[in-house]
């Protein structure tokens, strides 16, 4: 396969008359077309036999300097890393196993690599993420119930979100793993390990800022109400109204139009002590009532459509102070 690729490249580059940019000048020799066709046919044949060609790791290229890449990675994120720790953050357990196997296969009795994997750093990073994200959410959404905060937290630390973050900061080529491209969980573990390494190198505040800037910002333009499925909204509303002494919530039909047509619309409001909590539309009264209850809950939680956007520049000291109060910290981090 590699031979074929080299051959095709040679055809493209050695022949001076093929100009990729200037089509008018092109005076392509007669042997080029059949050669390319032949190469293409052989490539296809190989693909049918062996499956699609595997992506070659960037580190297999001649122009590759791992140290420079690691250095540039730190600069890109505007962070100061301890070099060895950052390098360790990119080493997956599978890579060490693979390298040891390789050494054994050539007859080394006790293979040693002088490498340690990123699991310890990843564990530390995961702890930092949990602490910070929960406190950040508690500060940003003070009226949101704990179950809801948990749901948003679960979304933020889910593999899909962390995978996206990890890929977007350019870990793909730097990860040392037995697979290329790396498996999804390796990406996630690497991101956590990077945060752990940052904590060890530059301290807690920088690690928190990293989490705020790269993980919390994934809530940008996300409707937090959609992340939390409420089982029985009416029951929850009744409970909250009882706790806050707002009175019994009752639904009232405010308006309707187009009765007995396919375009019927009902407009229902929820009132407690003659004060409107929220409104909702629906094609029948039941749906309109449910929507109105959801709207009332959004208003009570202060997460309605016109809520203030999240403050992603919130000083991390504010969050760290919250974490220092033992009771609050325990309440926020436990049972997640």
């Amino acid at each position: 396969m590699t031979l074929l690729r080299i051959a095709s490249r040679a055809v493209l580059t050695l022949h001076p008359t093929i100009s990729l940019l200037n089509q008018q000048k092109a005076n392509v020799a007669r042997w080029v077309r059949p050669t390319l066709m032949e190469i293409r046919a052989r490539k296809k044949k190989l693909e049918i036999k062996n499956g699609p060609q595997k992506e070659s790791p960037r580190s297999n290229f001649i122009e590759w300097n791992y140290d420079a890449e690691i250095y540039a990675f730190g600069i890109r994120l505007k962070e100061k890393f301890n070099y060895t720790l950052l390098q360790q953050a990119f080493v997956d357990r599978s890579y060490i196993v693979q390298e040891e196997m390789k050494q054994r296969s050539v007859g080394v009795e006790n293979p040693s690599l002088n490498l340690s994997d990123n699991s310890a750093l990843a564990k530390k990073g995961e702890e930092l993420i949990t602490e910070f994200v929960i406190s950040f959410l508690n500060l940003s959404l003070p009226k949101f119930p704990r179950d809801g905060i948990k749901a948003i937290y679960r979304h933020l630390v889910s593999d899909e979100v962390l995978l996206k973050v990890s890929q977007s900061i350019g870990t793909k080529d730097l990860i040392l793993s037995s697979n290329y491209p790396p498996m999804n969980d390796v990406y996630v573990a690497t991101l956590k390990a990077i945060i752990g390494a940052l904590f060890e190198s530059s301290g807690e505040a920088r690690a928190y800022e990293f989490i705020r800037d790269f993980i919390c910002t994934q809530l940008n333009q996300v409707d937090v109400n959609e992340l939390w499925k409420i089982e029985n909204p009416m029951e929850l509303l009744k409970e909250i109204c009882k706790d806050k002494k707002l009175g019994e919530p009752e639904p009232r039909l405010i308006n309707n139009a187009g009765q007995n047509t396919i375009l019927a619309v009902h407009y229902v409001g929820i009132y407690a002590n003659k004060k409107q909590l929220g409104t909702g539309f629906g094609e029948n009264i039941q749906i309109a009532k449910e929507e109105a209850v959801k709207d009332s809950l959004r208003t009570l939680f202060q997460t309605n459509n016109n809520m203030k956007p999240f403050n992603f520049r919130m000083p991390v000291e504010k969050v760290a102070n919250l974490l220092k109060k033992p009771a609050l910290a325990a309440a926020s981090v436990d049972n997640i």
């Binding site: 122009e63 540039a72 994120l77 790269f214 919390c216 333009q221």
Partner: peptide, 18 residues
């Protein structure tokens, strides 16, 4: 912008030049 670049902090998107 890729990955809400700039909401948290700005990352230079060019990583390698040959």
């Amino acid at each position: 912008p890729p990955f809400y670049n700039g909401v948290g902090r700005q990352i230079n998107q060019l990583q390698r030049l040959t």
